[in-house]
């Protein structure tokens, strides 16, 4: 029986920079995970539907535009409505520390700043999914 961790890496909203998301996707693949990457400019609806259909354990949101406080609540709400609040949601990109507390209250499990070693993210995911 295999138990491979499946992760959705998503870019919500209108920012067009996905170097970071691609590096994370590759890093997680090399750590033995199955990584679905959906590309740029995804709406919360698209992200949540992809997460449901792919039955992922984890969603990684990459955002650089500053619209996290607008887009993340929408994503978390839709997950809740779909009865999939069990999915571990993490975030990365440019997210000011002042906003972290509010985002974590929404249910975002971790926020990784630029410069975070991939191994730290891998460890976090493995730990969370095994719970």
């Amino acid at each position: 029986m295999d138990n491979i961790i499946k992760v959705l890496i998503a870019k919500p909203g209108l920012d067009g920079h996905d170097r970071g998301a691609k590096v994370i996707a590759r890093g997680l693949k090399e750590a033995g995970m199955e990584v679905v990457y959906t590309g740029l400019r995804q709406t919360p609806e698209q992200i949540v539907r992809s997460a449901i259909q792919e039955d992922v354990d984890v969603i990684g949101l990459s955002i650089l535009s500053g619209a996290h406080s607008y887009l993340f609540p929408e994503i978390m709400n839709r997950l809740k409505k779909a009865d999939r609040s069990d999915v571990v949601v993490i975030a990365g990109g440019i997210i000011p520390e002042d906003d972290h507390k509010k985002l974590k209250e929404l249910g975002i499990k971790a926020i990784f700043q630029p410069g975070t070693p991939i191994s730290k993210i891998v460890d976090f995911i493995e730990n969370e999914v095994q719970k």
Partner: peptide
């Protein structure tokens, strides 16, 4: 690694 990068959804945006 046993992992995989699944990227076909990128080009199926209009039907997602």
């Amino acid at each position: 690694s046993g992992g995989a990068l699944l990227g076909d959804r990128i080009r199926m945006d209009k039907i997602s």
